[in-house]
C-alpha cells in the first residue's frame, strides 16, 4: 500500500510570533521555519507502518512556497520515499487555505492512488484544523481524526481518537484519511547519513493549475492584531493573604 502524507512549512514552534504593527499579518521575514509538529507525527506514523511491512511507499506532499522543499527534504530524511512540491504561491505570507490544499491533495490522490492519507490534525500557524476532514469529504472517504492509536487490518483501520472527556475508538473502511494528535508517537530525528541520502530522493514540482485547482482564498483577512493584553495583578506574600483576597476582594470562593 502507498501512503500519502501532506506536510506544511510553518514558523518554528519555538519562535515568538510578532504581529506587524500595520495589522497586515504576522512577520515571517527571516524567521526560522520548520515542519508543522503534527505533520512530523504523521510522517513518523507512515514510517512505522512501512517498517512494520504494511506500507511499501511513502509520498510526502507540500503545498506552498518553493522553499517548502526544505520541509519535504526533512520528511525524506526521516524516511519518506518520494516528494511532491505544489508551488502555489511565491509569497511566504500567503497562506493557502485548507479547502484549496484539500483540492490539490484530492487531485494528487487521484494520480497517486494511495490507500491511506495521514495528516497532522492542525497546522500551528492558522490553527484551522480542517485539511484532513476536507480532503476526506472531497474524496468521499472515511475519516478518523485526532488519532492517538492507529492499527491497519486489511480493509479497515482501527483508530483511537482524542475526544472531549476521553478516548473514542472507531473502525473505518479503507481508503481513509487519518489525522494525528500529539500522543500517537514521538517523531525521530533524521540522521546525518539519511539527510545526505534524502538529497538524492526524487522531488517533483507541480503547480495548482497543472492539477486543475483554483487556490483563490475564500476568506479575506481584514486585519491581524495582537491579542488584548491582560493586566498583571499583585503578588501576595502568604497563603493567608491569598485566601483573604479571594474571599473579600475577588469574592470567588
Amino acid at each position: 500500500m502507498k501512503v500519502l502524507v501532506p506536510v506544511k512549512r510553518v514558523i518554528d514552534y519555538n519562535v515568538k510570533v510578532r504581529v506587524k504593527a500595520d495589522g497586515s499579518g504576522v512577520d515571517l521575514a527571516n524567521v526560522k521555519m520548520s515542519m508543522n509538529p503534527f505533520d512530523e507525527i504523521a510522517v513518523e506514523a507512515a514510517i512505522r507502518l512501512k517498517e512494520a511491512g504494511q506500507v511499501d511507499e511513502i509520498v510526502v506532499v507540500s503545498v506552498g512556497v518553493a522553499k517548502a522543499q526544505e520541509t519535504l527534504r526533512t520528511a525524506l530524511a526521516m524516511g519518506a520515499d518520494r516528494a511532491i512540491l505544489v508551488e502555489a504561491t511565491d509569497d511566504v505570507h500567503t497562506d493557502i487555505e485548507p479547502l484549496a490544499v484539500a483540492k490539490v491533495l484530492k487531485a494528487l490522490v487521484e494520480e497517486e492512488q494511495p490507500g491511506l492519507v495521514i495528516c497532522g490534525k492542525q497546522a500551528i500557524d492558522n490553527d484551522m484544523n480542517a485539511t484532513g476532514q476536507m480532503l476526506s469529504a472531497l474524496l468521499g472517504w472515511s475519516q478518523a481524526t485526532f488519532a492517538s492509536e492507529l492499527a491497519i487490518e486489511g480493509e479497515s483501520a482501527t483508530v483511537t481518537r482524542e475526544v472531549d472527556g476521553g478516548l473514542q475508538t472507531i473502525k473505518v473502511k479503507m481508503p481513509a484519511v487519518v489525522t494525528v494528535d500529539l500522543r500517537l508517537n514521538e517523531p525521530r530525528y533524521a540522521s546525518l547519513p539519511n539527510i545526505m541520502k534524502a538529497k538524492k530522493k526524487p522531488l517533483d514540482t507541480k503547480t495548482p493549475s497543472d492539477l486543475g485547482v483554483d487556490v483563490t482564498p475564500r476568506l479575506s483577512v481584514v486585519t491581524t492584531t495582537e491579542p488584548a493584553a491582560r493586566a498583571a495583578g499583585v503578588k501576595v506574600g502568604s497563603v493567608d493573604e491569598l485566601v483573604l483576597k479571594l474571599k473579600d476582594e475577588a469574592g470567588v470562593i
Partner: peptide, 8 residues
C-alpha cells in the same frame, strides 16, 4: 491564530 498570539 498562532496559538492565540494573534487575532485575525
Amino acid at each position: 491564530i498562532y496559538a492565540g498570539n494573534a487575532i485575525q
